[in-house]
């Protein structure tokens, strides 16, 4: 065993810091290594002061109360907010919690576009999707995508016009 270890050391002498943190006594390693037993005191510890609650915060039903601090970004609103409130009736172990949240996220995208328009801002979706970078670094692919988009749109328009013509001739 000693020879094996010695060989390993020699083989790696070119790697700066090789083996410097090797510690055979490091068992069990993280995340168990600093176990204190404090968990058994459950929620009986000195909690930090509470952040005042000035916006709606959806709280996991697996908690007895809010944590001492919480994020106040983008409180739930609109239809997506209603769906999110419904989701929080279910525990984190339930699909009833996560699937409605995914649905709410998609609804929220449409709400975001409507909000932008209401504020007189027309979102530049191509720019938001980073198409400047696509054009700069992946031009062939960008041209390919544009060509496919134009072809599909032309095809759909042609079908629509053809159907309209057929209907009017009938």
């Amino acid at each position: 065993m000693e020879n094996i270890t010695e060989n390993v050391v020699n083989e790696h002498s070119h790697i700066k810091g090789w083996g410097i943190d090797a510690d055979p006594a490091n068992e069990p390693t993280y995340p168990m290594k600093m176990y204190t037993g404090d968990d058994h005191r459950r929620m009986n510890y000195e909690r930090p002061p509470m952040q005042p609650k000035n916006v709606e915060i959806l709280q996991s039903n697996e908690r007895p109360s809010l944590p001492a601090v919480f994020g106040t970004s983008t409180p739930p609103t609109g239809l997506s907010g209603k769906i999110r409130r419904y989701a929080f009736k279910f525990s984190e172990g339930s699909w009833g919690h996560w699937l409605p949240l995914m649905l709410a996220d998609r609804v929220n995208v449409v709400e975001g576009i409507v909000d932008d328009l209401k504020q007189g801002y027309v979102p530049n979706i191509f720019k938001e999707r980073g198409w400047n970078a696509e054009w700069k670094y992946n031009r062939n692919k960008a041209i390919q995508k544009i060509a496919i988009g134009v072809a599909v749109t032309s095809f759909l328009l042609t079908v629509l016009v053809y159907r309209k013509d057929n209907k009017s001739s009938n």
Binding site: P31, T36, D38, R47, Q59, R63, P67, V69, G71, F88
Partner: peptide
Amino acid sequence: CGTCPFCRQELYGNCHESNAEATA
């Protein structure tokens, strides 16, 4: 938070006083 039982075990990624929406 640095004071909850998880932070006291240096499980700073598992703090019990910083996430209202999920406990994991």
